[in-house]
Design a binder for these strands. Structure first.
Length: 645
RNA sequence: GCCGAUGUAGCUCAGUUGGCCAGAGCAGCUGAUUUGUAAUCAGCUGGCCGGGGGUUCGAAUCCCUCCAUCGGCUCCA
């Protein structure tokens, strides 16, 4: 007999070899019907896998992340089975579950395939699902595994097997499909009740663009039809928040084929909003001891040879600009740091001057491959809220902390709560990818880790994600569709000071190398505004929004009073307009609601007589009437509260 | 750059198997209306059907090519 401990700490006794599914059946029949997989001593396994010793058991259902993952992983197999039956002879790469569903990379050989074929595959999948095919696990020897896939002529699976050890190889069979797979899987395909193939894409084998491109089919499945419908509705909702759609609707920015792909045009309202963000940050930075600088948009090729960027990226940049007579080469600046290094070099520095913090809203130009452009989040011309801090090695930690404070302040003012903090360190296996010496790298990496720990931030550490000149800490947020984008960044750099031979005189009257910290709390104005739009669904915080309120006179009889209200508000630094069209009030309200103007002030006979305004809040409706002065005061207080430190 | 999809008025979309001067709603303009918490009415303007090339008596519809956009892959100083 063995003891099975359930999550509520209750203990049940069974014969050795009992399966999680049997335990579930003992608890309730309904539970047994919903068990997708099980966690035994912390490891996710098949619900049919026998338990042989005393164990802690957690039954996994659709409401568990691992339950969903198991469902989707099994769905990948189901799709592969359907595809193999419809397209005999295709070869399979990998087919994992992902955050939302699953995919399978398939070499379709000579078959032509497009998303038009999805309905056919989906139908086949549902057909096979209804057969309630069992997922059967089988341990195989390496020789047997190699044999099987050689027979099938599948070089991809053979390559995967090659990296595995004999004795740790297992097959999963379901229906006519056999896959090299660690598992776990559903008890049978019957759990899959709704199927949607979502997209088709090329994906390089093992992520290597030099290797063959396989066809990746993405899909998602559900245990109930209704859940699929809900998922699709949710997707539709998310699309409504898309910054590309809202940017157009709210007249914030635009693109023109004639100007060029990835070159955003900021429209008046967008420019105003961006300007306000910039002023906000400038003010914070002024308090934190930053000085603003301005540098040109191009730089001599020698600048980038000195910085090292030329050798690393010269070929992948916009082509150089040359002067007509002398043939000198200039590059559009892809970053601001080299220019700022030259500013540092403009005068000698004492340790007493440090840290020196110089900031610039610097517009940079980077050649991004055409397929990578994406709304405002990935563009070829963008403005970084850049600054560089030159300091002594002892000051690194404090400066790093100071930058973190700024970033946290900004996130608070804009109500960003769900962000991910990522620390990017070297790939220890590829030291040739980085410039700079070992000792400096270690120092930098350590400083970042320590500050993150002291700030009590929840961080993830990624090896191999560091910039080539130094380790960094990035702040990422998700867009409406769940894609991750990097916003703020702090990067320690021991390399550029070396390359530019930056110096300061220490208290010992000797020359020393300063440390450089690159930082951009927003990251870029373009990407930040994009993510901000999606986070607030176009309803910007009151302090930031281009039009804070609109005055709606009931008829032109009240135009004069409306103008009086307007000038009063303008005198109180409130951004307002009058809708003086000869439209009905209902129409004016509707238009203002759609433009997401936070407040509507309706003025008519009663308001004029009493010196009040009838207040309507966007999305919330009628708030009753208020004395004009009282309303203005309320607005001011609301804004102050958002910006307090 | 690669794989797949898409591209019709400022915006959202119709345009049947290639066939009469390419349609609608919204926006815009003109006029009427003077309006009380999410769409007042009428008229008008507006399109080289993404660009170029081809097939055809005839192309928005078919083919080629380029460009842009969308979803991925790779990339992201």
């Amino acid at each position: 007999m063995i003891n099975i401990t359930l999550p509520d700490q209750s203990i049940r006794q069974y014969e050795a070899g009992v399966t999680p599914l049997q335990v579930a059946g003992d608890i309730s029949e309904g539970l047994a019907r919903n068990v997708l997989a099980a966690k035994v001593n912390g490891k996710v396994v098949d619900a049919m896998r026998p338990i042989t010793r005393d164990s802690e058991l957690q039954l996994l259902t659709w409401s568990d992340t691992e339950g969903k993952a198991t469902m989707w992983h099994s769905s990948a197999h189901l799709m592969a089975e359907a595809v193999e039956q419809l397209y005999p002879g295709v070869k399979f790469g990998i087919g994992p579950d992902i955050e939302q569903g699953f995919y399978y990379d398939i070499d379709f050989m000579d078959y032509e395939i497009s998303s038009d074929d999805f309905p056919k595959i989906e139908k086949k999948m549902l057909e096979l699902a209804r057969e309630k095919q069992h997922y059967t696990r089988r341990e195989v020897s390496k020789a047997e595994a190699v044999d099987y896939w050689k027979n099938k002529n599948d070089e991809y699976k053979l390559e995967l097997i090659n990296d595995l050890e004999d004795g740790e190889i297992s097959f999963y069979e379901s229906g006519t499909f056999t896959d090299l797979c660690r598992g776990p899987h559903l008890p049978n395909t019957g759990f899959i009740k709704a199927v949607k193939l979502t997209s088709l894409a090329g994906a390089y084998w093992r992520g290597d663009e030099k290797r063959k491109q396989l066809t990746r089919i993405y899909g998602i499945t559900f245990p109930k039809k209704k859940e699929l419908t809900e998922y699709l509705e949710l997707l539709e909702e998310a699309k409504k928040r898309d910054h590309r759609k809202l940017g157009k609707e709210l007249e914030l920015f635009a693109f023109s084929q004639t100007v060029g792909a990835g070159l955003p045009l900021w429209l008046p309202k967008g420019a105003e909003l961006r300007e306000r963000l910039e002023q906000f940050l400038k003010k914070v930075q002024r308090k934190a001891g930053y000085k603003q600088v301005i540098t040109p948009h191009i730089g001599n090729v020698n600048l980038y040879k000195t910085s090292g960027h030329y050798q690393k990226y010269g070929e992948d940049s916009f082509r150089p600009i040359t002067t007509p007579q002398e043939g000198e080469e200039y590059f559009l600046k892809p970053m601001n740091c080299p220019h700022h290094c030259e500013i540092y070099k403009n005068s000698p520095h004492s340790y007493k001057d440090l840290p020196m913090r110089i900031a610039e809203f610097g517009t940079v130009y980077r050649y991004e491959q055409s397929g990578e452009l994406h709304g405002l989040t990935r563009v070829r011309s963008f403005t970084q809220d850049d600054a560089h801090i030159f300091c002594t090695p002892d000051q690194v930690k404090d400066e790093f902390k100071g930058v973190m404070d700024i970033i946290m302040h900004i996130f608070k003012a804009l109500d960003f709560k769900d962000f991910i903090t990522q620390i990017s360190l070297r790939d220890p296996e590829k030291p040739e990818k980085y410039i700079g010496d070992e000792e400096n790298w270690q120092k930098a990496e350590q400083a970042i880790m320590e500050v993150a720990k002291e700030q009590n931030l929840n961080t993830i550490v990624e090896y191999g994600e560091a910039a080539f000149y130094g380790p960094k800490m990035d702040f990422m947020v998700r867009d409406a569709l769940g894609r991750k984008w990097q916003l703020g960044t702090i990067q320690v750099d021991y390399n550029l000071p070396e390359r530019f031979e930056l110096e300061y005189i220490g208290s010992d009257n000797q020359k020393h190398r300063p440390v450089m910290i690159h930082r951009a709390p927003f990251g870029s104005m373009e990407r930040f505004v994009a993510v901000l739009i999606e986070h607030c669904a176009g309803k910007f915080p009151l302090w930031l929004t281009p039009e804070q309120l609109i005055i709606l006179p009931i008829s032109e009889k009240y135009q004069k009073y409306a103008e009086k209200v307007l000038s009063f508000l303008e005198n109180n630094d409130i951004r307002a307009q009058i809708d003086d069209r000869s439209e009905k009030t209902g129409r004016k309200i509707r238009d203002a609601e759609l433009k997401r103007i936070p407040y509507m002030l309706i003025v008519g006979e009663k308001e004029e007589a009493e010196g009040t305004v009838s207040v309507r809040k966007q999305g919330e409706g009628d708030m009753g009437s208020l004395k004009l002065e009282a309303f203005a005061k309320n607005i001011q207080e609301e804004i102050d509260k958002m910006l307090e430190e």
